[in-house]
Design a protein around this nucleic acid. Structure first.
Length: 467
RNA sequence: GGCGGUAUAGCCAAGUGGUAAGGCACGGGUCUGCAAAACCCUUAUUCCCCGGUUCGAAUCCGGGUACCGCCUCCA
């Protein structure tokens, strides 16, 4: 049946059908780089990375572009406060972004265009909008005239009249209509600026994405994604600009992820509950954070706090433990019993996983299937005789699902050093001679070093304790 | 005021007409030299409330309530 996805534009699930065969053009709005990213920024990074990887898993070739807003009011403000040059500050936080999202298992996009490197395209985009009568200059600023674009409001399903009520004109703005928005802003004395036909200034916020999408992916793309709050005004405005100029649909599918809350409250500076990824990964492993995020559907609101992370850690460990136990059993057991009724089990689970994920990237249900498989594998491990073939099918399937979601289903084994191996051997002898005091002493000693021993009918297995 | 989202066990979270997935935590049991891991049992007669439609609703309709978000360059 193929992939179904929820399209914000039509407010329903639709069959996913890219424009050209298996090629998918996907654009995700990236961060404004003036600080470390917080946990709310991490969600779109993670969920759309998941979407991308799942599409690839399903055989699509994804062209993935995500921008950096590396010049805007907030960056200028932050730079002033720190007494740092804008480009240096932006560069610093771009590096931090890659570091943080990389830890969370987010792959780099194929391209990460920056505003400052897209200036010629932005300027000609604006010029073309003025020429077509969709934008006007006012004293060095350029505004998009929302009234001139008939489709304005269709993404957020609001009428111009309703929007008008909430809109206002800030002091100093020279727009004709409160709903108009800046394409180009003239610079103040001493501010970082670029030359343009309207004098020196910098781009407005929304125009960069329109220019970048067109430059790097084309006039129409398949998927345009971002946080829910970007739907209005950011995406609405992007869409208006692009469709006014190109006279064709900007994106076929619009995807928006739900918000993250901290203890059921909005994360905001005034509440002082900002959680930076940079900080939280000092205390909780980034793999757990990714797993936690994917345990909820991407469009649902998601509450975040450390207890929830702790619980997610235990859940993930259940998977890792089973993988470890499967590996141990396959290694230690000389059994090659009949596969029997277990033979098809893993592949059936894999089919279920695909069915769930095909339904609007429901990673929550995908992970449930993984747990069902874990349960089945654990039951199989209770059998006296196990077949290597079945053990391998369980292991391979768990790994396949793990890699489709890019969650960490197995812990790194590392090498045991000689001292530890010697102690384990000594303990085997101690247990044989029923010297349990010594055996327990060794087990406790190793536990202090993060090595956990478990005795099974197939011998002693070990695993490293997770941080 | 306009637009939108969410309300399911102690906690998290699936489930859009067919009789409540899964995970975490808790309790009991099996296994074990003891543990650990695992398995088994137990844990929501019920899905925010009130009406309605239906043979049948957490799921559809009407009306409420609560919380959250957007309309303020905040993902």
């Amino acid at each position: 049946m193929g992939i179904m996805l929820y399209n914000t534009l039509t407010r329903q699930k639709e069959a996913f059908q890219p424009m050209s065969g298996s090629e998918v053009k996907m654009y995700v709005c990236g961060p404004t780089v003036y600080n470390y990213i917080h946990i709310g920024n991490a969600r779109p990074a993670i969920v759309f990375d998941m979407v991308r990887k799942y599409l690839e898993y399903r055989g699509y070739n994804v062209h993935y572009v995500s921008n950096f807003t590396d010049v805007d009011d907030k960056i200028i403000k932050a730079a002033n406060e720190l007494g740092e040059e804008v480009p240096r500050l932006a560069e610093r936080f771009i590096e931090a972004y890659f570091e943080d999202t990389g830890a969370l298992g987010v792959d780099k996009a194929d391209l990460h265009p920056r505003v400052t490197e897209t200036m010629p395209e932005i300027i000609s985009f604006i010029k073309a909008l003025i020429d077509k009568g969709y934008a006007y200059e006012a004293d060095g600023d350029v505004y998009f005239s929302t009234r001139s674009f008939s489709g304005y409001g269709k993404l957020s399903s609001q009428s111009i009249q309703d929007l008008q009520l909430g809109a206002r004109i800030e002091p100093g703005e020279k727009k004709k209509n409160a709903l108009d928005f800046a394409l180009w802003k003239s610079s103040k004395e001493g501010e970082i600026a670029w030359e343009s036909p309207w004098g020196s200034g910098r781009p407005g916020w929304h125009i960069e994405c329109s220019a970048m999408v067109k430059k790097y992916l084309g006039e129409t793309i398949d998927i345009h994604a971002g946080g829910q709050d970007l739907a209005f005004p950011h995406h609405e405005n992007e869409m208006a600009q692009s469709e006014a100029l190109n006279e064709q649909e900007m994106a076929r599918y619009w995807m928006h992820n739900g918000y993250i809350q901290i203890d059921n409250e909005k994360m905001s500076k005034s509440l002082g509950n900002f959680v930076l990824v940079h900080d939280i990964i000092q205390k909780h492993s980034p793999e757990v954070i990714r797993f936690f995020m994917l345990q909820a559907h991407y469009r649902s609101p998601l509450n975040f706090n450390e207890e929830l992370l702790e619980s997610a850690k235990n859940s993930l460990e259940r998977i890792q433990t089973t993988v470890n136990n499967l590996k141990h059993r396959r290694r230690e057991s000389a059994d090659f019993g009949e596969a029997g009724r277990w033979k098809e089990t893993a592949s059936k689970h894999l089919q279920r996983f695909i069915r769930e994920m095909d339904d609007d990237f429901n990673s929550a249900n995908g992970i449930t299937v993984l747990f069902d498989l874990i349960k089945t594998a654990n039951l199989y491990l209770e059998e006296k005789q196990t077949s290597k073939e079945v053990l391998t099918s369980f292991l391979d399937t768990i790994r396949e699902i793990g890699s489709a979601l890019d969650i960490k289903v197995e812990t790194s084994e590392g090498m045991l050093d000689e001292e530890i191996e010697a102690l384990m051997e000594e303990r085997v002898q101690a247990r044989k001679s029923r010297n349990f005091a010594r055996a327990d002493e060794i087990r406790d000693h190793l536990k202090e070093q993060g090595i956990i021993l478990e005795d099974t009918p197939q011998g002693t297995r070990w695993k490293r304790e997770q941080s």
